[in-house]
Computed example of a mutant assay.
Amino acid sequence: MRSEQVRLFQTLPHACGYYAERTAQNLVIDPAAPQLDRLYGPALERGFRRAGGHLYFPHCPECRACTPCRIDALHFEPDRSQRRCLKRNADLVVTECLAGYNAERHALYENYLRQRHPGGGMDEADASDFRRFLTAPWSPTVFLEFRLRGRLLGVAVTDICRSGLSAVYTFYDPKEDSRGLGTFAILKQVELARRRNLPWVYLGFWIEGHPKMDYKRRFRPLQLRTAEGWQLMP
């Protein structure tokens, strides 16, 4: 992806999703570019992330805390806690499904947001919000569904590109919190990457010292994208 082939826009300052006292800005690849499907893989390599139909990268004038990270899927080995998570969820049926809206998924998504992000502006998500945030016409997206005796417990929104697999978003039944479905989703995405012989699972951004981001450290080998390129996390 050469810079002269695509336009980049910078968003206006907005509230930071991680630090209440900070503002944030993003660089966004032109959402009207006709070749977004072809740009997506190279953009992942450069640390970009998809949200709805936008490919973005944090570009805050006074902060560089957000660091792109990815799992080396082909060399990943689950630790003891992750093996327990797999065993705990061995009763679930995992299915790779076509991405898209339906009432069952929407009800689960809405319930998850109400419980996990109350008052955050996302907790009253209607059908259009679901489609706009989780899918895009050009995006190679699948939904990994987790079911217990037919009941939908969780969905891992997963983009599959030539350069790797991107873990876009996971939502699940908050009553099943003890299962560790967020961890389970990543483990299943690593398995999917291996089946497709894809080297990386992109986890979005890691922030050193942030409690909501600490779980990503456990998926090793983990690489961080620095000014010198991708580097193994020590």
Rank of each mutant, 00 (worst) to 15 (best):
S3H: 14
E4H: 14
E4M: 12
L8N: 01
L8A: 04
Q10D: 07
Q10Y: 12
A15Y: 01
C16M: 14
Y19R: 15
A20Y: 08
A20H: 13
Q25F: 07
L27N: 04
L27S: 05
D30F: 05
A32W: 10
A33K: 05
L36H: 10
D37K: 08
R38W: 00
L39Y: 14
Y40E: 08
G41E: 09
P42M: 14
L44C: 07
G47P: 13
A51I: 05
A51M: 06
G52V: 04
G53C: 13
G53Q: 14
H54M: 10
H54Q: 06
Y56L: 12
F57S: 10
F57C: 10
C60S: 14
P61I: 10
A65G: 12
A65M: 12
A65T: 14
C66F: 09
T67A: 10
P68H: 03
L74F: 04
H75V: 01
H75G: 04
F76E: 04
E77R: 09
E77A: 03
D79T: 08
R80C: 00
S81H: 13
R83Y: 05
C85I: 09
L86I: 07
K87A: 01
K87M: 00
N89Q: 14
L92A: 02
L98D: 11
L98T: 09
Y101M: 10
N102A: 05
E104M: 03
H106R: 07
H106M: 08
A107M: 11
L108P: 07
Y109H: 12
E110L: 15
Y112L: 10
R114A: 11
R116V: 06
P118F: 02
G119R: 02
D123Q: 15
A125F: 09
D126H: 13
D126K: 11
S128E: 15
S128H: 12
D129I: 06
D129Q: 08
D129W: 11
R131S: 07
R132I: 02
R132T: 13
F133H: 12
T135I: 09
P137N: 02
P137Y: 06
S139R: 02
P140V: 08
T141D: 01
T141M: 06
V142Y: 06
L144Q: 05
E145Y: 00
F146W: 06
F146H: 08
R149F: 11
R149P: 07
G150T: 12
L153E: 13
G154T: 10
V155H: 06
V157P: 02
T158H: 01
C161Y: 00
S163I: 05
G164W: 09
V168M: 03
K175D: 15
E176W: 04
R179F: 02
R179I: 00
L181G: 13
I186G: 01
V190G: 01
E191I: 01
E191K: 08
L192G: 02
A193G: 08
A193F: 04
R194V: 13
R196H: 15
N197V: 04
N197R: 07
N197A: 12
L198E: 03
L198Q: 07
P199Q: 04
L203A: 02
G204P: 11
G204D: 10
G204E: 06
I207K: 12
M213F: 15
M213Q: 15
D214F: 00
D214I: 11
D214N: 09
Y215D: 14
K216A: 13
R217I: 14
R218Q: 14
L222G: 03
Q223M: 03
R225V: 01
A227T: 06
A227W: 00
G229I: 08
Q231L: 05
L232P: 02
M233Y: 12
M233T: 02
P234E: 15
P234S: 10
